[in-house]
Design a protein around this nucleic acid. Sequence first.
DNA 1: TAGTGGTCTAGACCACTCC
DNA 2: GAGTGGTCTAGACCACTAC
Lengths: 262, 262
Amino acid sequence: MGTTQLESVPEPKYWHLKTVISEALDSEFEVGEILPNERELAARFGVARATLRQALEQLELEGRLQRRRGVGTTVAPPRVGVDVSTAQHRWPGTGEENWEAVDCTFAAPPAAVARLLELDTDADADADADAAGSRGAARSVHTVRRLRATRGQSVAAEQLYVPASSVPGLVTSGDTTGPVLARGVLRELALLPLDGQDRAVELGSARADDAKELDRLPGAPVLVVTTRYLSEGRTAAVSVATYRADTCRLTFGDVGDLQIAS
Amino acid sequence: MGTTQLESVPEPKYWHLKTVISEALDSEFEVGEILPNERELAARFGVARATLRQALEQLELEGRLQRRRGVGTTVAPPRVGVDVSTAQHRWPGTGEENWEAVDCTFAAPPAAVARLLELDTDADADADADAAGSRGAARSVHTVRRLRATRGQSVAAEQLYVPASSVPGLVTSGDTTGPVLARGVLRELALLPLDGQDRAVELGSARADDAKELDRLPGAPVLVVTTRYLSEGRTAAVSVATYRADTCRLTFGDVGDLQIAS
DNA sequence: TAGTGGTCTAGACCACTCC
DNA sequence: GAGTGGTCTAGACCACTAC
């Protein structure tokens, strides 16, 4: 490190720290190796623990480190490329690897999803958003929950919203929940003609339930992939999948196995 | 708020705060409206400023708030959808809107980019990574810098790496830098047949130069889009574009104008 | 010059994992 | 029970913006 007092535009300590640690990771540590604990690192660099943590947080955000409470901080492996390309033109659950349907519920979706599904188009929809009683069932959809794993590691949790009108042949046998019904919904959905999909990616933070599935703390950064499945001129289903931002690189094609981080 | 002491699994204060503020944003604030300052908000909620800041940081990450030093915290507009679909099968700079080429340099690219460009394939490449002298020119590439704006707002900064072999007809007139040459490189590149592209998206943090262009602080979260342009069986160019994660939603298709955050 | 968000400190206690 | 990262506090000062 040495003295940096000559800098006319002093960069923040945590930023400098991040650079120093990052270089150390490249040259002095192996993937999976455990770093000294935060109190020791802070003392070694002569900063407060909070400042040290700010640097570690950024490195974790960039996928360089992995921190687990009660365990320690380890050097993360390169991000895994996860294919989310839309080229295959397939319904969810048909011929895909790595996804597992774990549950299904029947309830009103979040407002943003309802908009994509073109529910709630009546004029007074916004006025009775909280009156989820009498007319709630009309706006309810099957919600299939799926998990995606790659190389033994959970990478994504998804909620797939399917209006009852998209699965007219579904036999519920009285039950509207459970993994068996989840697979039933996927099976029925696949009977529709699939005209196309469109997809969006944005940054979000993990909800409590997603965080638990992904083995992260609530609020952890995630890449939210929203997919709209189009059939016969309308939106037949909407998927909202959250991918671990620290360990995943979403690929749209076959860029392969190299990581380009900033 | 009320007392939450009955919770058997007490959630962190900042998490609860985030929820409370988020709901207040929905019901009591307009887009662009300025919030009370951090010291006042912290006092109002009865927490330390650092705790309040942790909640605000998450909300900013999710695109709900915008904070500017010396100014204040404002309610952010919904994220803008930015099309990054690969369907168009075009070279960069041909028929695209919103991108502006601002500069061009000639230098060795980062190691990860060199790998994608299939430079440095000789056996001792890793041994002389720091000996950028004699043989450095052989590994240098034209680096075109471009900026993307949407609705008057800078949303992305890109570095496009183009090996000299991809632009054999380029006339440098002695100069290997400057915006004029940048446009020349793009023009020459467009002469090649474009076989395809593949693309990857991952989370990163803004480098100092990108942060400046994007009007953010260094380290701000960004979505890094890496594109490989394929021509005649090889990688003719590589683009690394960083998009503001707080204000952008990357679209691969035409999902349109609705935001689905977590 | 006043007010804002950004950085930093030196503590404290808690939740979790592992032995 | 020992050790780890996660949360929280109550201050301080700095960099930037706008008046």
